[in-house]
């Protein structure tokens, strides 16, 4: 048997073992792999919105005057994109991070040269990648199966999507900062998810909401998100107030998360 602490020898995977792969890249790949091993999270956050979209597509035939001249599926596409973003960012990610803290994984990383902050960066990147993938799946399914038009203003849509994802990931970090355990983070995530999705129009689309509810919705994170995504899908630039709300939420949540986050 070779000595326990013998130096690394070159292999196919590591031709130059003295310089291993970048730690951040490795952490990102690892976190992404771990996320893909969570079938329940993946089903709820990515598959379920697509299934819901298909159901809406089968149920909607003609345009509806009460939906502002859109079909049911056209109305729901941005809502389901917000669903996927929120499920990954506010339910899945904080549960994982709070569990990491609870099980002293973050503290263990603090004793290594890379430190624990990069595992946060890796989690954010992995979740953002999955949010973008789920969004692409929703848009592709809607377009190919039900002729939902592709975003009319691609740049505006991308901006709205990135702002939505950023605001939700920041909120996820805040939940992870405040939750004492992984289980608590899951519970807080669920408590936030349902009211936010209500104002996004999951149960009553915004167009059919009573006036007061619609006004409140405009000032909630997902109400603003759906508005911005909807506007850019129909080819317009989103209302400045929606973009401003999303930006403000992103900054507030991120600042609060930075203030309250504990590594142990």
């Amino acid at each position: 048997m070779p000595p326990v602490l013998s130096p690394a020898v070159p292999t196919a995977a590591h031709p130059d073992p003295a310089r291993p792969r970048s730690a951040l890249g490795k952490l990102m790949i690892t976190e992404a792999k771990l996320l893909l091993r969570e079938p329940i999270t993946l089903f709820w956050s990515a598959a379920f919105p697509v299934i819901l979209l298909i159901v809406m597509g089968l149920a909607s035939s003609a345009t509806q005057a009460d939906l502002g001249g859109l079909r049911l599926i056209d109305t729901y596409q941005p809502i389901l994109i917000a669903f996927a973003a929120t499920a990954f960012a506010v339910q899945g990610m904080p549960t994982a991070l709070a569990t990491y803290r609870e099980r002293r994984i973050l503290r263990r990383l603090a004793t290594t040269p890379v430190g624990p902050a990069r595992v946060l960066a890796a989690q954010l990147t992995a979740n953002l990648a999955l949010i973008l993938t789920a969004t692409a799946a929703i848009i592709t399914t809607g377009h190919l199966a039900f002729h939902v038009p592709l975003p009319g203003n691609g740049l505006a849509f991308l901006l709205a999507l990135m702002l939505t994802a950023t605001a939700m990931l920041s909120l996820g970090l805040l939940v992870a900062a405040l939750a004492p355990s992984g289980r608590a983070a899951g519970a807080i995530g669920a408590v936030l998810f349902f009211p936010m999705m209500f104002f996004a129009g999951l149960w009553i689309p915004k167009a059919t909401m009573p006036h007061v509810l619609r006004q409140i919705s405009d000032f909630t994170p997902l109400g603003a998100a759906v508005q911005a995504l909807q506007d850019s899908t129909t080819g317009q630039w989103p209302a400045p107030v929606a973009l401003a709300m999303l930006t403000a939420y992103a900054i507030i949540f991120a600042a609060a998360a930075a203030k309250f986050f504990r590594w142990q």
């Binding site: 326990v4 013998s6 310089r19 690892t30």
Partner: peptide
Amino acid sequence: DLYRSFYRHPADHTALLEA
């Protein structure tokens, strides 16, 4: 493999796992 990437001159993982 993940923890190896944190260090400049890591040990040989096969030997370590065997030991």
